[in-house]
Simulated scan of single mutants.
Amino acid sequence: MQLKSYFCLAIALCLFFESQYGAAEDNWIELFNGKDTSGWTNPYEWGQAEVVDGEIHLTADKKFFLVTDREFGDFVFEGEVKLPEGQANSGFMFRCHVEPNKVYGYQAEVDGSDRNWSGGLYDEGRRQWVWPSLKGRTTDEKLLEYEQESHDYFKRPEVAKAFDRDGWNRYRITCKGDSIKIEVNDVVTTDIHDDVDSQGPIAIQHHGEKGQTYKFRNLRVRELE
C-alpha cells in the first residue's frame, strides 16, 4: 500500500507540474492576428502599415513606430523581424512612451550594420545606448569598466553571429521588475538591470529609409505575475 501511495503521489505531482507548465505556455496573447493591424496604432502623421501574407510591412520616408494599444509591465515578448537589403535599422520598443509623432524609451536593437549590435538595449529619444554603452561619455572608472565589458560582450563569437542579416530573426524580451533580458535567435545579447521604466506599450520600428520595407510576424506576449 505504501509503494502504491508513493506511486500515486508521483503521478499527481507530474500531472500538476505539467498542467502548470501548459497553462503558462497557453497564456500567450497574440498581438498580431495575421490579417490586419487590429490592436495597433500609428501615432505619427506619416508611415504606412499593411498586412501582406501574414506579415506586417512598414513603409515610410521618415522614422515611425507602430504601437500596441495595450500596455505591458512584466512580460515575455516574442517577435520576428526581417530587415530590407542595404542600409537598415529597426527595433522592438517595450515599456515605451507614446506622444503625437513621438515614441521613446526602451528598444531592443535590430542592427543591420557591420557593427552588429543587434539585441543591444537602446534608449530611444533619451540616453541612447545602455548596453553596449557608448564609450567616451564618462571619466568614471567603474563606468568605463562597464563600457568596456559591454563592448567585449558583443565581440563574443556566439553573440556576434546571433543575428542573421539576410533572414528572419526571432527576438525574445523578458522584463521582470528592473530585470531586462533580450535574446536573438535564442542567444542572450542583453541581461541587465535598469529601472527607468516599468510599464508601457510595445512597438515596431521603421527607421525611415525611403523605399525600404520592414517586415514583422509572429508577435506575441505572455504577461508575468
Rank of each mutant, 00 (worst) to 15 (best):
L13T: 13
D74W: 09
I182K: 02
R217N: 02
E50S: 10
W40D: 04
N33K: 03
F163Q: 03
W168P: 01
C175K: 09
E147Q: 12
K215I: 11
V110E: 03
C14P: 04
K82M: 12
N218W: 02
F75N: 04
G177D: 13
L224Y: 08
Q20Y: 13
L224H: 10
L121W: 07
G79Y: 04
M93Y: 10
K35G: 08
P43W: 05
D191P: 01
K181G: 05
V196R: 12
N218I: 02
H206R: 01
G119I: 08
P100C: 01
Q205E: 13
C14V: 15
I11P: 06
W117T: 11
F65K: 06
D111V: 08
T213W: 08
T174F: 05
E209V: 15
P43V: 09
G136K: 10
G200E: 09
K142A: 15
K35C: 06
F163C: 01
E80W: 03
D194C: 08
D114L: 09
V103E: 07
S90Q: 01
E183G: 03
N101G: 04
D197I: 03
G79W: 03
K62F: 06
F92S: 00
P157T: 02
I202H: 01
I192S: 09
Y146M: 12
N27A: 15
K82A: 04
E124T: 03
Y6D: 11
H193V: 12
K215W: 14
I56F: 05
I173R: 00
K135R: 12
E183F: 00
E145A: 14
Y44D: 03
E209K: 10
V130I: 15
G120R: 01
V188Q: 01
R165K: 15
E147S: 15
R127I: 10
G22A: 11
G39V: 00
C14N: 13
L143W: 15
N116A: 08
K102T: 09
S113I: 09
R222I: 14
V184Y: 04
N116F: 03
I29A: 00
K62V: 07
F7C: 11
G79M: 03
W131Y: 15
G86W: 12
W168Q: 07
W28N: 04
A12Y: 11
F77D: 07
E109L: 08
E78N: 03
A23P: 02
S5C: 09
S90P: 04
P157I: 06
T59Q: 11
S179T: 14
T138H: 07
E141R: 13
G105E: 06
D186N: 14
V130K: 10
A108I: 00
S5V: 15
D195K: 13
V184E: 06
G39T: 03
F77Q: 05
W117D: 14
G54M: 07
D61I: 09
G86M: 10
L3E: 15
F64S: 00
L31M: 02
E145C: 02
K63E: 15
A203L: 00
K215E: 14
A60H: 06
